[in-house]
Amino acid sequence: MPETLLVFIRSVLAFVWLFFLTRLVGRKQVSELSFTEYVVGITIGSIAAQASTDPQNRFLDGVVGVAVWALAAVGLSYVQLKSKAARKFIEGEPIVVIARGKISKQGLRQARLSTSELMDLLRQRDVFDLQQVDWALLETDGQLTVLKKPEYQPLTPKTAGLPSESGGLPRVVVADGEVLTDALRAAGKDRTWLQRELAREGVDDVREVMLAQVVDNRLHVYRRAPSRKG
């Protein structure tokens, strides 16, 4: 068998194998990965790449290697889920870098951060003035969590003494002119209500609607742009 064809077949098989393993391991954004999970991911990718492109290595060895690392990742996740001590040992704990408006030198040393790097992380959280910060913690995934002082926090109905009520999760009930029955039912509405609300918006035919959402028990309609003729 030509070597190029062999690499192609091995690569396809490795991709399929990795796909099933990633479904087993679970879904996480790259920014949410712990350092251990990041290392495991790189190692699995490296083993899979070598198994795909190096005919000198047995493909089965690569399959077994990837499976072992993937199962190790699943095992670590299970242990962390069941044991707080294990989770603390494997992932560590958030580090306080600003406490009561003051930079913690001990926290910076523990996190191996300079003040310049801290300010860079604050700017990524839309904080440009250190005086606005009450507490800041460096999370185990490297993200910075910031709690602003009360006078710099955004105004909410509760702080303003106004009544507030949650309307539930926004639901897309019409997409590309088609009514999404399950979403409409989940929003606690029916087609009669939808037709009435569309009529209020001047919509005679649901096919005129590009998108419609139920937000806070109200229908928000986005109509299709009129087609140009000629």
Rank of each mutant, 00 (worst) to 15 (best):
L113G: 00
S114T: 15
T36Q: 04
V16F: 00
L71R: 02
Q106N: 12
A67M: 12
P2G: 08
Y152P: 01
G142Y: 04
P154Y: 08
V146E: 07
V146N: 03
T159M: 10
S83M: 07
E32C: 01
K102Q: 14
D120S: 15
G230N: 13
M1S: 14
S34C: 05
L147T: 09
S116Y: 01
A48S: 02
N57F: 15
L194I: 12
Y152M: 06
L118S: 11
L21P: 01
E37D: 02
G41M: 02
G142H: 04
L76R: 00
L144M: 09
K105D: 15
Y38V: 11
L76W: 07
R100Y: 11
F8T: 15
G101Q: 05
L211E: 03
M210E: 06
S46T: 04
V209L: 03
V221G: 04
V179D: 03
D205G: 08
V74H: 07
K189V: 12
V133C: 14
L162E: 08
A67R: 10
L122T: 02
A225K: 03
K28R: 09
D205I: 00
D126I: 06
S34R: 02
S227V: 14
L155A: 15
A199Q: 05
A111S: 08
A85R: 11
V96Q: 05
V30M: 14
L155W: 03
R112Y: 14
K229G: 15
V97F: 04
L194K: 10
D204L: 14
V25I: 14
R218G: 10
I42T: 13
G202A: 05
F8I: 01
L24E: 01
I98L: 05
V203Q: 11
V214T: 14
R10G: 14
W69L: 13
K149F: 08
E201G: 09
S104H: 00
L71P: 08
H220D: 02
R224W: 15
L118V: 06
S52F: 08
T22R: 10
R185E: 14
T22S: 10
T159E: 05
R23S: 06
A99V: 04
G202Y: 05
L5H: 02
L76F: 13
E117A: 06
D204R: 14
R200A: 12
D126F: 02
G45L: 05
A51E: 01
Q110E: 11
V25C: 12
T159F: 10
V172L: 10
G142K: 13
